[in-house]
């Protein structure tokens, strides 16, 4: 018994230390950094200021933020549109098929996402696979400009983030009691009405969870826009990255990072509040 307790205390301690070292301290550092002043030679000076946050409202950054949000929203909708039918059919599939199908979703994770992004670049390039095929088929006369466009960024984000939409959707769809659909059919609802009145409302927590898991990273994945987007299609993550690496303005980069974190946290909190009620009903059943 005491042996067990000791083991438990030890593991809790280890986890706490880990969290403090790798989560709490870095975040605190960023937080503090965000209210310090930039210094050319030392990166920062111990001089408190809110200026970094004020600068965020500069139209230039606001525009980047809005454009990034727009691409993230489109990405989320695309993912939802693609993932829902897939997750739905996997959830309906016989049990032994389900794991295999989910495995197929997860396998691409085994390849580094950077490499997969370069693969997309190879496909979309002016002399890339897609253009070559379309030219050969005679469907187009001159190569399409696909790379370094908004579309390319959205495509890349969608491709990389799709699994994060599929998995939470599958998790809720799989849990819906098939009896509910039978009951709805029994009461006169055809397949279309059953889908909209039973399946969709009951899968809403998964839709929200999946949307957050796509939307938030889509704001931050700077290497996608670096590789596929060119100079005009930046995401919020690009700003943060460039402040740290190129402009050497750590305090401002920190302020941007903190703001993004806060926005994400607020969205997660809203989701938590909504889903808690929904989940309670599902659990109490």
């Amino acid at each position: 018994m005491t042996e067990k307790n000791r083991l438990r205390s030890l593991s809790i301690l280890l986890i706490s230390v880990w969290l403090v070292l790798f989560v709490l301290i870095p975040n605190l550092m960023i937080l503090v950094l965000s209210i310090l002043t930039r210094d050319e030679s030392q990166f920062y000076r111990w001089e408190y200021t809110w200026e970094n946050y004020q600068r965020l409202f500069d139209p230039v950054y606001l525009q980047v933020f809005l454009h990034s949000l727009w691409m993230a929203v489109v990405t989320t909708l695309l993912c939802l549109l693609l993932a829902y039918p897939f997750a739905y059919f996997v959830a309906q599939a016989p049990k032994r098929w389900r794991n295999l199908l989910l495995l197929l979703v997860i396998i691409p994770f085994w390849t580094n996402s950077l490499i997969r992004t370069y693969a997309i670049k190879v496909i979309l390039g002016t002399k890339g696979l897609l253009n070559t095929v379309l030219l050969e088929l005679g469907l187009i006369e001159t190569p399409l400009r696909l790379l370094y466009t908004e579309t390319a960024v959205i495509l890349g984000l969608t491709y990389l983030l799709l699994p994060f939409m599929i998995l939470p959707l599958f998790a809720v769809l799989e849990k819906i009691d098939p009896n509910l659909n039978e009951a709805a059919a029994d009461l006169g609802a055809n397949a279309w009405k059953r889908f909209w009145r039973i399946t969709v409302p009951l899968s809403l927590p998964g839709v929200i969870a999946g949307s957050l898991m796509v939307l938030l990273p889509a704001l931050g994945m700077f290497y996608i826009s670096d590789i596929l987007g060119g100079a005009k299609n930046l995401v919020v993550g690009n700003i943060i990255k460039s402040q740290f690496l190129d402009a050497r303005d750590w305090p401002f980069g920190s302020a941007a990072s903190v703001t993004l974190t806060v926005v994400m946290a607020l969205m997660l909190f809203a989701y938590y509040r909504v889903s808690r009620n929904q989940n309670r009903e599902l659990i109490d059943r």
């Binding site: 009691d177 009896n179 509910l180 039978e182 009951a183 709805a184 039973i198 009951l202 599902l282 059943r285």
Partner: peptide
């Protein structure tokens, strides 16, 4: 239904 199958939402 045996388990009632009421719509929880």
């Amino acid at each position: 239904f045996q388990n009632y199958a009421l719509f929880p939402h």
